[in-house]
Each structure stands twice: as structure tokens, then as C-alpha cells.
Design a protein around this nucleic acid. Structure first.
Lengths: 341, 341
DNA sequence: CTGAAAGCGCTTACAG
DNA sequence: CTGAAAGCGCTTACAG
């Protein structure tokens, strides 16, 4: 089916008048001695023939590749796209190619992808999405990642709660807590929360941060003050609808993610409900679009690109000692929040 | 450095009591006969041992892999993120993994990535970004892609003007022309164009569409009516500044891309210039955020996710006959445009 | 320092 | 249908 590439290392060796072994050394081991001019001759031959090493042959012989695997929930989501940008930037600096897979928050799919990436002998697997709360799945992932790491792979997770590999730990709870404090300071007491799927650890943490922030001021959430929706713009639309059509709608809508907040803003706009005059709205994440929204969205800004860069950098470090990098969100108080009148 | 994976095909063969060759056939050739129960036995052994085939060994033996390469300008840009989502969706259906590289519109980098992907024997290379106008580079790319295709690879470009492989041809000029017609129908006669880098073929085509659309109505662009900026939000900010601070600012700003329009909207908002009351603004592309902007952005909507899906589907087809799929943009008239008062 | 040879883990003609 | 063997294109002990 496929024609083989014409020029192999063997060809280069012959062209340069050396053995296969020598050609290999001159080409891939910069520290190797070699008699004067030899290296130059081999390099010249390689260039002359347009030699391109076969990465599969190399991977087979050395059991490592120049690829890294990046596991995210969804590229179409700006949160992950931005983070991926950071990963790719650093990977490029190290001549690494990144293979990206999207799980769409589906546990079996996540596991299968990790297995495939491990089978590919990628140098590292970066799990950039919040981990999924499911005991059986967590155990299977753990076993898989452990085995992968034991066989020389590097694992990095952008989520807390992973017990293997390096971790970039985003302080979801702390960020939300800060945000809530700020809103309470503005005078808010009536909150509605639009949450995402509870299977996401990040969602749980953000909710916990909200509860804690309220509790710090003697406030709390009623049963009906929180709705669970899809982590998307559509989810935000539905969530706002549920909360705002109650007899006594909240004066402040806390979304657990920026995209959800966008949906909520859209719902409110369509109903002619003014933000922030009638109701305040907040997001979480700080994706670039929060600046373009009108009103601009108050949110907890995460250095997403930097998170991606850090993750990729950790991926380059040896598995031991384990690194845990804590990332704080910054409160970005913008135009979608104001004191309730 | 790296421990080898413990279970090889050889182990499965021994466990099942068959030869290596038979094990290989039972596992990877579904159409192969084999005596009754043999296949089941081999599969059972593979499962029992947790066998995972080594894709590099397979790639070396067959000269194909289960990966495809996706070349884009920038993942952080929603245009490419959305398109990539489509590619990944279809790739997943075919058990293909996608390796994504970002060129940041840098020609040498694009070429180098294509070479690396070709060396990896990816099944297909999808060039999702507009091609770069640079004769030397175009020729080098052409040679590389041709060689890659001759060796069995599949190439798909989402840009016109590529003479090798399948093509998804987005009608940039036609879309812009439709948009301009609509604006002229609204009563606009005074336009300012915020263009991107002229090295991008897509930018040239969109400009050409604008010129044509104007010409259809006996209008034209003056020397100062067009500014060239970076294809980004910041570019839009700068472009709006240049055009709107002229003695006689235009009444309608045409951006060649949605992100540029966002920057322009932001600049206008900061100056208290009302859109669309004082000035109309349009984009191109139809990325999801155009709906969340306030006012929502009038744009030419491209089915970006579908474009990605189509590209990946074409990648699965044989190189011959060549397919060229034409994609039209849809005029999305929204709130950022109105008749000039 | 250099080369001949074995080995990485598969697939696939070639015999039987 | 099945198996022994060669081969894919590299790297790397092992001798010299």
C-alpha cells in the first residue's frame, strides 16, 4: 500500500563510507567522539540525500518517542484551547509533537485514550481536564498511569486528587471563596448558583468554595438556589431560566464556569433583565472572551496558558520527586457585578 | 531508560499455543479464516495477558500509522479550535489519533512540521490554515506534500490554491461580497477595512470580495480606507484606532476576521462610540463568540466544525480522484450593523 | 574510535 | 490454514 521512504540510515552510511553504527552515532549522539571530520562527512551525506530518520524505528529501538499526549475534555472550549496553547508552545521548544485527544468528559473514553497513548510510548501524558469522580474509573486510571510511569513515561495532571505523577493544582475552592467574599462585600445576600456536572471534581471544589465563602459571612444556600447543568453556553441558558423564573429570583448568579455565565448573560439579555443593575453575574476561569462580553464578565481569572506551559514543563522532569504546583486564581472584578440596589 | 512493555505478541502466541504469525493474523486480520475456535482462543489470551500491540512495531512493518497530522495556525484562536473539534470528532470514529501542530503563520515552521509529520508516516496531513503566499515556501511545501502523497499519505488542505491532495475550498471572496452587498443595501457608502497580513491567501480573497462587492455598486476603496493589522483582537484595536481617528472616519468597519472585529468593538466601546448607531461593524468566520458579543456581530458564518469534519473525511479517501469541496459562508445579519443615520 | 551483529515488536511473503 | 523466516529502520551492547 505504501511505498517505503527511499533513504535510510544505511544509505547515508554508504554515501559517507562508514558503517551503519557510526552513521547512527554521528547523527544522534552529539557527545560521541569520532575522528576529525567524520561527523561533518556523515552530516553532509545525510543532508545531500535528504535523509529523515524514521521515528518508529527509533521508537522501537529505544522505547521512547518524541510525542506527548494531551488529554482534554473539549478543544472547542476556550478554557482547554488556551491551556493547550501553552502546552504546545513549550512542547515545540523541546522538539516534541503533541497528540491531542478529547474525552468530552466521558470516563471510558478517557481511559481508552490513556491506554492508547501509553501504547504509543509517548514521552508524557498530560491530563488537562478535571478528573472524573467515579471510583472504578479512578482506580483503572490510576493503575494505567502507574504502569505507564513505571515503564518510563511521565504523567502530569491538572487536577488535584491524582496520586500519581506531577500535579498542577488549581485552587478552585479558594478562588470561588474570594469571589464570594467580594460579592458579599458589595452587599449581595441572595445568590443563585449554576453548577456543572457533579462528576467533575473541579465543579465540586468550586461549589465547596462558594459554600465556604458564604458560610464565612453566616450565609448559606437553600435547596433551590443551585441548579446543575451541562458545562456549556446552553447549560447557562437553561440554568438562568430555572433560577430566574422562580417566584423570588436571586440577585446574583454565580456560574461555575465562564461559558455557563455567557449562556446566563444571553438569557438575561433576551428577557431585558439588566446586568448588573437588576442582577449580577459571575463566571470562573477567565477565558479571553470574558473581556469582550458586554458587560465584561467578573470572574476568577486563571493563568490558563501558563498552566499549560507549567504542565508541559513538569512533564519534562523525572517522575521523582513528585512536583505539585499550586495555581491561584485572581479575582477579576469587572462590569457584570454591582451592589444590589 | 525505559522498561519495555512486558507483554508482546510472542507472549500471546505462546499463551494460546499458536505461532507468532497465527496470533498476528487472528488479532489484526478480521477476514482471515483460521480453524474453529482459534480466533477466540487467541483473543482470550490477549485479553488475559492485557496485550496491547506496539504501534511503532506495526508502523515499521506496515509503513502506516493510526495517526493523522493537523496543521493549524493557532489553537487559541476559536476559528481553529472549532475546526479542530470537527477533525477530532471524525478521527475518533475511525480510531485515529490526531497530532496537532501550530505554525503561528510562520512559513519555515509549517514546512518543518509537515516534514516531521510525513516522517512519522501519519495516515494523513490536514492543512487547516490558509496557505501562506511565498513562492519559495509554496514550492517547498508542494514538493514535500507530493512526495508524502506518493508514498501513500493523504493530504487535505482547507485553502484554495493547493495543487496537491484534496481541498476544502471556503468561498472567502464570495462571502465577503454578499456581506458588502447587504451593507450597501442598508445604505452604507463609507467603509473602512481592517485587514490581516497579506501573506495569507484567505485575507487576500476576502479583500478581493470586498472590492468586488463595492465595485458591483459603483463604489470603491480609497488608499486610506484599508489598514493592515495582526490577525488578532489586538490587531482590531489598532486597526479601529487608525481608521476612526482620521478626520473623516468611516461609517462602517469591515474586519476580515471575527477576532479583529472584537478588537474594533472594544476600541469603539472604550471611546463611547455607539455600535451600530454611530458606526456599523462586521466580522468574518462566525465563531461562536460572535453570538455573545454585544451587540451581536454581523458576520459571514462558516460551518467551521463541519469544515473540520469534511476535511477529515476527505483524508480517508484515496488520493485519486482529487476532491474539491466548496464551502459557502452564510450571511448572519445581527445587531452590529444598521443603516447609517 | 569503529564495525558486525543482535534486538526492538510487529507483518507478510514463502513453503508446507 | 499454519508456521519458520525475513524484513521494516533504527540503536547499542559487544568485540576488536
Amino acid at each position: 500500500m505504501v511505498e517505503r521512504s527511499p533513504v535510510r540510515l544505511q544509505d547515508v552510511a554508504e554515501h559517507a563510507g562508514v558503517s551503519l553504527a557510526t552513521a547512527s552515532r554521528m547523527l544522534s549522539d552529539p557527545g560521541y567522539g569520532g575522528r576529525a571530520g567524520l561527523r561533518e562527512r556523515v552530516l553532509a551525506s545525510a543532508a545531500a540525500l535528504g535523509y529523515r530518520p524514521n521515528p518508529h524505528a527509533r521508537a522501537l529501538a529505544t522505547a521512547t518517542s518524541m510525542n506527548v499526549g494531551l488529554v482534554i475534555h473539549d478543544v472547542r472550549d476556550a478554557y482547554f484551547a488556551t491551556l493547550s496553547g501553552g502546552v504546545i508552545t513549550v512542547a515545540e521548544r523541546h522538539d516534541l509533537l503533541v497528540t491531542m485527544v478529547c474525552t468530552y468528559r466521558n470516563a471510558p473514553r478517557e481511559l481508552e485514550y490513556v491506554q492508547r497513548l501509553a501504547a504509543q510510548r509517548v514521552r508524557a501524558i498530560i491530563l488537562a481536564g478535571s478528573s472524573l469522580r467515579d471510583t472504578a474509573h479512578t482506580e483503572a486510571m490510576h493503575a494505567e498511569l502507574e504502569a505507564y510511569q513505571d515503564s518510563g513515561g511521565s504523567v502530569v495532571s491538572v487536577t488535584r486528587g491524582r496520586t500519581v505523577g506531577h500535579v498542577v493544582d488549581i485552587d478552585n475552592a479558594g478562588g470561588m471563596r474570594k469571589l464570594v467574599h467580594d460579592l458579599v462585600a458589595l452587599g449581595h445576600t441572595s445568590f443563585g448558583v449554576i453548577a456543572g456536572p457533579l462528576k467533575l471534581l473541579a465543579v465540586r471544589d468550586r461549589l465547596q468554595g462558594i459554600r465556604q465563602g458564604l458560610k464565612d459571612h453566616g450565609l448559606s444556600l437553600g435547596r433551590d438556589d443551585i441548579v446543575y447543568v451541562d458545562l456549556s453556553r446552553e447549560g447557562g441558558l437553561a440554568g438562568a431560566e430555572q433560577l430566574m423564573t422562580r417566584p423570588d429570583p436571586p440577585r446574583c448568579l454565580l456560574a461555575v464556569a465562564d461559558v455557563i455565565a455567557f449562556g446566563a448573560l444571553s438569557w438575561l439579555r433576551a428577557r431585558g433583565i439588566a446586568v448588573p443593575a437588576d442582577v449580577s453575574v459571575t463566571g470562573f476561569g477567565g477565558i479571553p472572551a470574558t473581556l469582550d462580553a458586554v458587560p465584561s464578565l467578573t470572574t476568577v481569572e486563571l493563568p490558563l496558558e501558563e498552566v499549560g506551559e507549567t504542565a508541559m514543563e513538569l512533564a519534562l522532569k523525572p517522575a521523582s520527586p513528585r512536583h505539585v504546583v499550586e495555581v491561584e486564581g485572581t479575582l477579576a472584578r469587572r462590569d457584570s457585578t454591582a451592589p444590589p440596589h
